[in-house]
Write a protein that binds this DNA or RNA. Structure first.
Length: 557
RNA sequence: CCUCUCGUAGUUCAAUGGAUAGAACGCAAGCUUGCGGAGCUUGUAAUGUAGGUUCGAUUCCUACCGAGAGGACCA
């Protein structure tokens, strides 16, 4: 529809003598009641040296004459906007489409034929799964689904740091305590102790560096055993969390594998990676003044995160065929990725543009920054646990069929939505108190609207009230205007890697539905069949939209 | 000191260079003879400062003020 209008506007502009005016077809303010708006007259007015309002009048006449099918009328508004109103029949096509296309409703072909690897979550064994990982998971999973709904084949990848100083610190802590078999919580506590000792105590620092080297070399049996056990234990724990969140990865990569690969590549390119103060570095600023020097191999000859990333890129390429690889991590790593990807493209010029990085903001507490040393880190599982408790309390004794499962779905919805409703890349101020609230602009609000739809439709079925097959529009204009936008919103979100466009849309749709629902009786009215068709379309749109956010749509809650 | 990101109601977020800057939370006042009140209706209140570009700036440019992140052996 949007394309059709754009084509007609282009035609009208050509006739008026401004064929290359850069206009847009957009959504007008809700109060106008229009479906689309176009600013062409304002843009062309400048080129033609005429008043925008006069150009609008001329365009209006030209467009009326062109007879765009599905358009009922066009109005001139404000400084010269053309407000375009669709006919009721045209709006109703979305109602039919939502029902016919079912779970495919809203899909598009923006990434058709492409294979995209999305790497996200990326927690580190021996450390806690904290809420930053929840952010990465929520965004990564949603982006992956947006790609899938846009025709791409998606490979979900997870890159876990199973070697490096953090592991050595945890093992040092475990050795101090003599803990051979401990819980996941004790392992991460051991990491915190090790991290503190590393800072404060030079002997401990030396010991930890020794352990780090031994882990890489696998030269000490006692450490090997402790390492193998701790690694497996934490990875198992992570799998439980992935299941809870609804993520299932296709490929796993580990730093213990990428490290050696990265070392090889770095050593094979002495023209890029040079010795400096005992380490091997890459002088980023020599290639771009915005970049800086980073260490790829440290004094001990061990690969750093940088060299590992090069190894990771190589392994991804070997294992999978893809057109694009997108890594979702925190904002603080942006400068690091810029340097590493520059080095990567110098080594493999043919990979230019293949590797991309999306950064999400930092999760901050109202009281300040979270830090494991300060002990004010909120772990992913404790947050999920608290949310589940809150959800159960809210559910009360409603007699929901599977309360445990539904409470989990509500909890995950609340957490993911709070991350996805705002633009990626912005920091999130996390208020533990407020986040437990399930009211207002939230995931559960949308789920609730969905359950209402399901509930009405169920009731209709019991009473044998059929849905209209041939839908008449004009029942609920506010809702009918929103429905046709869904595919366009999805495509925009998929192209820009911005799940929040979908989230904002769902809020708008749920809100329009709730308003209508509150003042309109559905069953037992003359046009119940048409209303039910509309409800069914809303239900499908909410369900698909929630799916795109990685959130499930329970039938009751 | 340098680089990047960001400053919108009391708070947390929206707004492809466009129309009267839109929500939620909070606060105030209402809504059950109805298919789910996790809801609905009404009210309250905002673009850091100073310039510039533009028919039009929250959006683009410059300076300043303020916040966050990064800047060599962590990830």
């Amino acid at each position: 529809m949007k394309e059709k209008i754009e084509a007609a506007v282009r035609g009208a502009l050509a006739r008026l003598g401004a064929p290359d005016a850069a206009f847009v077809v957009e959504y007008p303010p809700a109060e106008t009641g229009a479906d689309y708006a176009c600013n062409a007259a304002l843009v062309a007015g400048k080129q033609l040296g005429q008043k925008p309002r006069d150009v609008a009048v001329a365009m209006h006449a030209a467009l009326e004459e062109a007879h765009i099918s599905g358009v009922e009328k066009i109005e001139i508004a404000g400084p010269g906007f053309l407000n375009i109103f669709l006919s009721s029949e045209s709006r109703a096509t979305a109602i039919v489409a939502a029902r016919e296309e079912g779970d495919r409703w809203g899909s598009n072909d923006a990434w058709s034929g492409k294979t995209i690897m999305v790497e996200y979550t990326d927690p580190n064994p021996f450390k806690e799964f904290h809420i930053g990982h929840l952010m990465s998971n929520a965004i990564g999973e949603s982006v992956a689904r947006l790609f899938e709904h846009s025709g791409a084949d998606v490979i979900r990848a997870n890159y876990q740091g199973d070697v490096g100083p953090h592991v050595a610190k945890a093992i040092w802590g475990l050795l101090q305590e003599g803990l051979a078999q401990s819980t996941v919580a004790q392992i991460s506590a051991a990491y915190v102790r090790g991290a503190a000792a590393y800072e404060e105590n030079t002997d401990a620092k030396r010991e930890i560096e020794e352990i780090n080297k031994k882990v890489y070399e696998k030269s000490d049996e006692k450490i090997n055993a402790l390492y193998a056990w701790g690694r497996e234990e934490t990875l198992k724990h992570f799998e439980d969390i992935y299941a809870l969140l609804g993520t299932s990865f296709d490929e796993y990569f580990f730093e213990s594998e990428t490290g050696p690969r990265g070392l090889e590549v770095v050593h094979a390119h002495p023209e890029l990676f040079v010795e400096s103060d005992g380490a091997i570095v890459f002088h980023g600023e020599e290639h771009d003044p915005k970049l800086h020097t980073r260490v790829f191999v440290n004094k001990q000859g061990l690969p750093t995160y940088e060299a590992k990333e090069i190894g990771l890129a190589q392994m991804k390429r070997e294992r999978c065929a893809f057109d694009r690889s997108i890594t979702v991590t925190a904002l603080e790593q942006e400068a690091y990725f810029n340097v590493v990807f520059t080095a990567l493209e110098l080594i493999y010029p043919e990979w230019k543009g293949v590797f991309e990085h999306i950064h999400h903001g930092m999760m901050q507490l109202q009281s300040g920054k979270m830090s494991s040393r300060k002990g004010n880190v909120i772990t992913g599982e404790s947050l999920i646990g608290d949310m589940i408790t809150a959800a159960k309390e809210k559910m009360g004794e409603r007699g929901v069929a599977n309360p445990e499962e539904v409470a989990r779905q509500i909890a995950v919805a609340a957490i993911k939505f709070s991350v996805l409703k705002q633009g990626a890349g912005k920091n999130i101020i996390f208020d533990p108190e407020k986040s437990l609230s399930l009211e207002g602009e939230s995931g559960p609000y949308i789920q609730y609207a969905h359950t209402r739809c399901v509930s009405v439709l169920k009731r209709a079925e019991e009473e044998s009230v059929a849905l209209s097959a041939h839908v008449r529009g004009g029942i609920a204009p506010d809702i009918e205007r929103l429905l046709p936008r869904f595919p366009e919103v999805v495509e925009r979100a998929a192209v820009q890697y911005e799940p929040h466009f979908v989230a904002q849309y769902l809020i708008e749709l749920s809100s329009a539905f709730n308003s209508w629902y509150a003042q309109e009786r559905i069953l037992g009215t003359p046009d119940a069949a048409d209303k039910l068709a509309l409800v069914s379309a809303v239900r499908q749109t909410l369900k698909n939209g929630l799916w795109l956010l990685g959130i499930s749509a329970p039938e009751e809650m």
